[in-house]
Design a protein around this nucleic acid. Sequence first.
DNA 1: AAAAAAC
Length: 599
Amino acid sequence: MSATMRTSSWAESADASSARPVKPAYVPPHLRNRSVAPAEPPSFVSNANERGLGGNWGGSSNSRQDFGNGGRQGYGSGSGGGFNNRGGAGMGVGRERGGRREANPFENDVDESFTEQENTGINFDAYDDIPVETSGENVPAPVNTFAEIDLGDALNQNIQRCKYVKPTPVQRYAIPISLAGRDLMACAQTGSGKTAAFCFPIISGILREPYAQRPRVARTAYPLALILSPTRELSCQIHDEAKKFSYQTGVKVVVAYGGAPITQQLRELERGVDILVATPGRLVDLLERARVSLQMIRYLALDEADRMLDMGFEPQIRKIVEQMDMPPPGMRQTLLFSATFPKEIQRLASDFLASYIFLAVGRVGSSTDLIAQRVEYVLESDKRSHLMDLLHAQRENDVNGKQGLTLVFVETKKGADALEHCLCVNGFPATCIHGDRTQQEREQALRSFKTGNTPILVATDVAARGLDIPRVAHVVNFDLPNDIDDYVHRIGRTGRAGKMGLATAFFNDSNLSMAKPLADLMQEANQEVPAWLTRYAARTPYGGSRNKRTGGARFGGRDVRKESSYNKGNDYYGGTGGGYGVPASYGGGYGQGVTSAWD
DNA sequence: AAAAAAC
């Protein structure tokens, strides 16, 4: 049962075959150019380009109809455990149109059985204690099981293949909201099951309305859903997950991001795309080349929106959403995910969303004891040897030769290279990831880390957010970030999905501005705060460099639309208050607007 | 100040 909590863990399908771009599987000559047999999954959602050659669907109206029914069988039968429904997605021949085999996205899933033992003793009910807050008009009720959601057989089977048994909090709320067609502004983090929370309704929605007529414009792809994310690796990860959710549904997922040759991505797009996952820069490029049109978009999801704004993507995002051919709010469904809610994000929400529901979900493990946080005073010159001591001690602790993964964060790209080199020279199997490495190197490094080939990964903040790497046992903040939000994101790479994690930070006099926020955060997470850190914290003026961009906002889990009626005494944005934990008012009988404690 | 992201 522990496995059930590992909501996003299979994202680790990390070995050679998950390298992007995915090569089409080999098709034997006698099967090439074969017309689509009725038993094949009809590409009812296929791109216009391809449909062009599809006039010969022959009995296609039949087969589509059949599929439509098949696809819907599960919808009506929701009450009785959708998991048991067999066959509904009966096109399980594992092929895409044209006889191209649909790669089994599950085949590389790591056998996690050995982790069962590690997990014993963890309080999985932690999931039930996570604070959740919703506001808005007519908020649909949350669900407690997948079975009570009308997702359809095909999707239910994939949920089963993913070994999900119970929806996570963000899924319990976000899925019914999205299925009801509502716009959503959600505060939740990867690792909370967020990706599934927006993918399930999108896939389900596409399956329910299979007859979208898309224009025929040569070489232009018309996706029905667009998912934007800040980093290339995150886009890849979302793509991998979405592939699993949409396996054998006929829904096509394509990923587009920079740093990789565009030609393969163009080819994938020409084969048809329903869900496009992209980083903003590459998408703008594709739009300007008119290789993608957004005019058929029915679903728009923005992941890690605050991160995208931090990275200066606002102009691109606004261009994509407001200045191209995307349908306006109300004509599409928009899901906005962000860890924090500074004013910029709130503006984005009011511009992109229509009559939205606000959802804030506490993070698994942030204020629980899933992540043990330690701070050590380490002089700059001692950091390397100290790190190697830690790694050495850790190696002693490893059981079954299973090396726990260690993620080491540094401040600069140069520093990452240097530290990686130093570790390797000293016999520690390390690799590194940062923005000066080629995309190929980045993906290779990530793979090698995930598979345990090099169980030490030195990283800049490119890896700080969103990446879901299972089995990260230890996060080391070799260089502390200057922003407590970044710290929270970094340590969030461990202690994921109900597992214990360890986070160690090296602190010295160059981190003075972090003393207070760090001490506060640790205290609120019931961590032991070293006396010396408390002294530093007392000495350092509060705030420091914190959160210029947010105007001093800590996690602003507040629906700003309520601002006028709700404005007294709670300075989530004032910064004089209680720092980073659960707002003092939380649990104190205080109701609306108060949400969870993380970020 | 550094990091990320299109060519």
